[in-house]
Design a protein around this nucleic acid. Structure first.
Lengths: 218, 218
DNA sequence: GAAAAGTGTAAAGAAATCGTAAAGATTTCA
DNA sequence: TGAAATCTTTACGATTTCTTTACACTTTTC
């Protein structure tokens, strides 16, 4: 689950944002001033920050330079164009003007949260191709028939190639389709998945990481 | 040098954009219709695409799904919000409304061109590297296979390099994975960890602090 | 200086995890 | 409704990891 920090001194807007984000399945953090924001960020590491500019104490412009490695979306009523450009050039990843359309805000959040270039329609790894549009997997141009659970598992593993994905993360990500999947049935699905891929190619793409989960190797 | 494709049937706006981008040091490509755009993209691979929506032939909405792996900024006079949100959710990386501020356009272009956030998280100490994403430890670029408990111990020690960490703190921090770990089994894990690191390098990174705990020395 | 407590390592036993197969349960679809 | 596909459960051997026990050694305490 992704965490988003809301930094806004306006309680109403903050509450509205918090409710909106939580409905979308995000976890939220709150801060109501610039100094509080910095304190919050010293203790937490959200995946994205919504930053208002007009804050008591340190304002948004002053907070921004202190934030590193986390995408910051400015959400502000300010319209000054040179200022806006400056913020975009100095670390903000986006700028949404109040009053904003919630749909657009959520869409822009999604864009900045999505793993690098996930407008990909195919995930490739050597001779293995997972087509996200066709919902199809092939090895050496030979189509491999996977069940939806196997497909979902392979997808999350390939989307995070070479990284270790915990069993719980996998279970979460397939819980929409397969809510009853347990640790041990996951084990079974992975075994079946491996078998199907192996039968075409002889390769085992999936590595078990003891006590943690699995890793897709490119 | 980065290349930007301008897909717009309006010659004036297209020329203006081209001049603007070239002044900023970008190379440019042009297309004046949807079909022409697809042809252009089959021969070239720009780093970013500026896409107008109202195009003759295939319009922008229809072109978008065919583009993979290249960030697409919609530049359009259309203001329909649901459409805007749909485009953002279906592959566009940004949406700028005509008439646009050139400064803002350039700033947004720069954002989407800037190198992917290297959310590579590593703890380094000399030749020892602990990669938090890969869940992997290496010494002198030689991978060292650790158990999850050994990894967890090394991680908390490296995160607090040069500071003394009490045995209880370590036990707490690994209690999620290894709840039954006691003082004396911790001793054993540290011994095993040291041995594995020592076998690559000969160095002992971990110092015991009498009666308290351990310290990782950089 | 001797007893008590702490540290470092090895080795063995206990426990957990992995990979697979087979069988039972559930869902899907004609 | 019945067959096929899919998912979950159970079982078991192989493997890995964790804990315990043992013992030599060092440091602290009295």
């Amino acid at each position: 689950m992704k965490t988003i920090a809301i930094i806004d001194d306006d309680i109403h807007i903050g509450n509205m944002l918090e409710e909106l984000l939580q409905q979308e399945g995000y976890a939220t953090l709150r801060a109501y001033s610039g100094t509080e924001a910095l304190f919050l960020l010293s203790r937490n590491e959200p995946d994205l920050i919504l930053l208002d500019l007009m804050l008591p104490g340190l304002n948004g412009e002053e907070v921004l330079p202190h934030i590193q490695d986390i995408p910051v979306m400015i959400v502000s009523a300010k319209m000054d164009m040179t200022n806006k450009v400056n913020l975009l050039l100095n670390g903000a990843c986006d700028y949404v003007t109040k009053p904003f359309d919630t749909g657009e805000l959520l869409a822009r959040i999604k864009i900045h949260l999505r793993p690098v270039r996930t407008n990909k329609k195919q995930l490739c790894a050597g001779d293995l191709v997972l087509d996200l549009n066709m919902h199809e997997v092939s090895v050496n141009h030979v189509s491999v028939k996977l069940t939806k659970t196997e497909y979902a598992i392979l997808k999350i593993l390939m989307q995070n190639a070479n990284q270790v994905i915990s069993k719980n993360t996998i279970l979460d990500s397939i819980s929409m389709d397969t809510p009853d999947c347990t640790d041990s049935s996951l084990k079974q699905h992975v075994s079946n998945l491996r078998k199907k891929l192996r039968e075409v190619n002889g390769t085992d793409y999936i590595e078990a990481v003891w006590g943690i989960g699995f890793r897709f190797i490119v």
